[in-house]
Nucleic acid binder design. Structure first.
Lengths: 186, 204
DNA sequence: ATCTTACTTTGAAAAGC
DNA sequence: GCTTTAAAAAGTAAGAT
């Protein structure tokens, strides 16, 4: 049975890790081709991987934030590339640094147009933020799973704030159920 | 202790001065926007509630005052767009919107989304359009909203397009530029909404 | 008039102001 | 709160052609 849950696509994964070693970012900026480092603007050095495509923010403390990856596997792959690059520069990197997924952004399609005005009232104005003058999406904060869902008139949605792959799936099933219960789904 | 006592008085005086400043700002902005006294009173009540619930910490007094006025206009059914409110405030539009969302949530104002129809009388009279055009614009908004065209669209742009369409239908034509100016939207937005609305009305 | 580019919103981490 | 990163959704806007 193909439903909205099957349309879920992970769009971005944010994760953090650390190599357990302090870094000289000035030196690293010179040794890493393509690295962007503007300490006046931001304390982190930006390094981008091509395959898989991702961006890493590397800090003086040795902590690293990886963003832009399309899957958790890609996060590990991209960070693996960065760990190796650092080792090539004779920087001691922990054997297998712990990688923590901090946020997963997914998109999905409910397959029906949505009446956002009716939805704002139906879902409860206290849990909803819908200000079409400022943004076309209705913002719905769900408690379980704890995610934020952006719903659009087209029926396309964005799920963000989750830390596990199945948070998006659970959230989509839940939101479909709630919208359907209101009689506002197709 | 005397020092502690004086500090309390000083704090109380400062708070009182801040409140007076906020209320006078609400008054000034309300006058500039031309909203009735009742709206200023509602805005004052909202501001005092925000003050009592300590929602101003970390935000500017002017920002909260402006947001309270924006909220009051909506609550009283005579909304002003964020653009219009920002014009009479010294706070940037982005901050007004963000602060409004915050106090609205914290105070549980639960204001319904702005209805485009609420802009019709004001925009239409600014364009010297007849009662007939207003009625037609209102009808266009109702019909196209019912067909789901309103979701995600800016209420001012939606109202502007309906007024433009109605002015054509009633032979009191206004140009897209004229309507765009009073509604503070672009001609492109009017054009886009207008096309959808005309189709929804069954006029090709 | 149409196209391109860009900005609005959500979420999270990092270090420092 | 801010700064930076990435990505989606859809509406609006601005500048160029």
């Amino acid at each position: 049975m193909s439903g909205p849950a099957d349309s879920i696509e992970i769009q971005n994964v944010v994760a953090s890790t650390g190599i357990g070693q302090e870094l000289d970012l000035e030196a690293l900026a010179d040794d890493l081709p393509g690295a962007d480092f503007n300490p006046d603007n931001f304390p982190g050095l930006v390094y981008r991987t091509q395959e898989p495509k991702a961006a890493a923010l590397i800090f003086r403390s040795g902590k690293i934030v990886c963003t832009g990856a399309k899957s958790i596997d890609d996060v590990h792959e991209a960070l693996g590339i960065i760990f190796d690059k650092l080792r090539e520069l004779s920087i001691p990197v922990d054997e297998e640094p712990e990688i923590t997924v901090q946020n997963i952004v997914s998109s999905a399609d409910l397959g029906h147009n949505l009446n956002l005005n009716a939805l704002a009232i139906g879902l409860g104005l206290e849990d909803v933020e819908y200000e079409p003058e400022q943004f076309p999406g209705l913002v719905y904060r769900m408690d379980e799973p704890k995610v934020v869902i952006l719903l659009f008139g087209s029926g396309k949605i964005v799920i963000t704030g989750g830390k596990r792959t199945d948070d998006a799936e659970t959230a989509v099933e839940e939101i479909v159920e709630r919208i359907d219960a209101l009689g506002l789904l197709g | 202790r005397l020092r502690k006592w004086q500090e309390r008085i000083r704090t109380k005086d400062a708070g009182e001065r801040n409140l007076q400043f906020a209320l006078s700002e609400i008054d000034r902005m309300a006058s500039a926007l031309g909203v009735p006294r009742s709206v200023r009173e509602v805005a004052s009540v909202i501001y005092r509630r925000a003050l009592n619930e300590d929602l101003i910490r970390g935000r500017s007094i002017e920002g909260v005052a402006t947001s309270a006025l924006y909220a009051a206009c909506r609550q009283e059914g005579i909304p002003r767009s964020l653009d219009e409110v920002a014009e009479v405030s010294r706070v940037p539009q982005k901050e007004i919107g963000r602060t409004y969302r915050y106090i609205s949530q914290e105070l549980g104002l639960e204001l319904k989304p702005v209805d485009p129809k609420q802009f019709v009388p004001r925009f239409a009279s600014a364009l010297n359009l007849s009662e007939e055009v207003q009625a037609k614009a209102t009808e266009i908004i109702d019909v196209s909203a019912e067909q789901g065209l309103l979701s995600g669209k800016s209420p001012t742009g939606f109202a502007a397009a309906a007024i433009y369409a109605a002015s054509l239908l009633c032979n009191e034509k206004k140009t897209q530029r004229e309507v765009a100016d009073v509604a503070q939207v672009t001609e492109v937005t009017i054009r886009n909404r207008y096309q959808e609305q005309i189709e929804a009305m069954g006029f090709r």
